[in-house]
Design a protein around this nucleic acid. Structure first.
Lengths: 226, 226
DNA sequence: GTCTATACACAGATAGAC
DNA sequence: GTCTATCTGTGTATAGAC
C-alpha cells in the first residue's frame, strides 16, 4: 500500500469532517441547515489552520477569523459558543479520526510484520491527508483545559500501545527480537510525528510521503526483525 | 559517557545563562549592576517557563509574569524593551547554547562511530540539563518574526548536517552502510526531540535519560552499522 | 442566518514618584 | 532599580436590526 492506494481506500474529505462536526455538535450550534453549516464550518476550519500555522491559536483573534472567512463576528458565534469551545471541538474531532483509523488498519492483517507496516503507514498517510488537523492538534494541545490535555495524552498512549502490542506479538511468534517494546513504540511515534511537524523540511528536500515512510519502515525493521 | 559525566564536564547552570544574556543584551537593558540583573533575569526566565508550559507565550500576560516573579510591571520593562523582544532574547540564547555544544562534542572524537554516539548523546543530555529552554524554543518558534523563524530552521538544518556528515564519513571509512543519510539524520533528530517534547511520558514510565539514549543509539547502530 | 454596532475586560506599555 | 497609577489599543462576546 502506498499513499495513493490509501487515499482511494480511505476516501474522506474536508467536507466529511465538517459534516461529522455538525452532527456531533448540533446541541451547541445555532445553525440548523446542514448544507449551510457544512460549507461554513469548512471555511472556518481552513481559516483557523491558515491563521494559526504561523502564530498559534491564542494569537488568533476572532477578528482575524472573521476577516479570513468573510463571515461577520456575529455569524461566527452562531457556529460555536466561544473561542475556547471551537478549539475543543476541533481537538475532539481530530482525536476521533486518529482512533478510528488506527484500529481499522491494525485489524486488517494477522501477521505481526504486516500489521506493523500497515499501522505505521496508515498513521503517516492519515497525517498527510489531514495534515493541518494533525499539526494543529499537536501544537495547540496545551491550550486545552487539563481535562482536554489528558484526552490528548490518552490518545498518544493508546496509539503507542497498539504498536507495542504488535511488537510483543511478533516476539512471541518469532519474527521480532526481544527488547524494550514500549520504548521502540515511542521512537516510532516520534518519527511518525516528524512528518507533519517539520513538513517544511521535507518539502524543501523534495522527499515524498512514500519515501519517508519506506525509510522509517526500513529503520524499524532493521532494528526489530530477527 | 553517561548523563552524570556530561553534567560534570559541561558544568553550566541557570545562573551562567542569565549572566550570558546580561552581557549580550546590555545595550537594551536599563539595569546596570550585574548581580541584580543576573538574579532577576533568572527569576524572569524561570517564571516564563512555568507560565508558558501550560498555555504558551502569547497567552502569558505581563501581569502574569509580574505576579510570578514578584516584580512590578515597571521593573520588568527595565530588563527588556517589550514582550516580543523578551521572546527573541530567549530564543537567541537557546540557539547559541545548542550550536556551541554540538560543535564541541562533534570534534571530541575521530572515529565516526564514536563521533556519532558523542553528538547524539550530547544533544539529548543538553536538552535534559536545560529542558525548559529546549521545550520553549520548539513550541514558541512560530511566534517569532519570519526572520527569527528562519534562524530556528537554520539551526535545525545545521544540527542535521552535523549528523549526516558523520554518516557519510562512516560510509567512506566502511563502518556504516550506504543509505539516505539525510533522511536518517532527520529521524535521529526526531527521536532526540521526543525526549524533551514528551517528557511527561517518560517520567510516567520511569525511563531515565540514559536508558532513553541507549535505546536510541541501539536503534541507530542497528540500522547504520555494517 | 447574517449583519452592524457596541459593551466592557484586559492587554502591553509608560510616566514619574520614591 | 523599583514601585504605583494610568494611557490607549485590542480582545471576546452580545444585542438587536434586517
Amino acid at each position: 500500500m502506498d499513499y495513493k492506494d490509501f487515499k482511494k481506500q480511505y476516501a474522506a474529505t474536508a467536507t466529511d469532517i465538517s459534516r461529522d462536526v455538525f452532527f456531533k455538535n448540533q446541541g451547541v450550534m445555532r445553525i440548523k441547515k446542514e448544507k449551510t453549516a457544512v460549507t461554513n464550518l469548512s471555511k472556518i476550519f481552513e481559516a483557523v489552520f491558515s491563521i494559526t500555522y504561523n502564530k498559534g491559536y491564542q494569537a488568533m483573534s476572532m477578528r482575524d477569523l472573521s476577516l479570513k472567512t468573510g463571515m461577520s463576528l456575529g455569524a461566527l458565534y452562531a457556529y460555536f459558543p466561544g473561542k475556547d469551545e471551537l478549539l475543543a471541538i476541533m481537538q475532539t474531532q481530530a482525536q476521533a479520526m486518529v482512533k478510528g483509523t488506527l484500529v481499522k488498519f491494525s485489524n486488517a492483517h494477522k501477521n505481526p510484520l504486516e500489521k506493523l507496516r500497515s499501522v505505521i503507514k496508515a498513521h503517516i498517510f492519515l497525517s498527510e491527508l489531514f495534515r493541518p488537523w494533525f499539526y494543529f492538534t499537536f501544537m495547540e494541545a496545551r491550550n486545552l483545559t487539563p481535562k482536554g490535555f489528558d484526552a490528548v495524552k490518552s490518545i498518544e498512549e493508546h496509539t503507542q500501545k497498539i504498536i507495542s502490542d504488535i511488537l510483543v506479538e511478533g516476539e512471541e511468534t518469532g519474527v521480532f527480537k526481544p527488547g524494550k517494546h514500549d520504548l521502540t513504540a515511542c521512537m516510532i511515534k516520534a518519527m511518525q510525528q516528524e512528518w507533519y511537524l517539520k513538513r517544511w523540511k521535507y518539502t524543501k528536500q523534495k522527499i515524498s510521503v512514500d519515501q519517508f515512510t519506506d525509510h522509517l519502515l526500513d529503520m524499524v525493521e532493521g532494528f526489530c526483525r530477527i
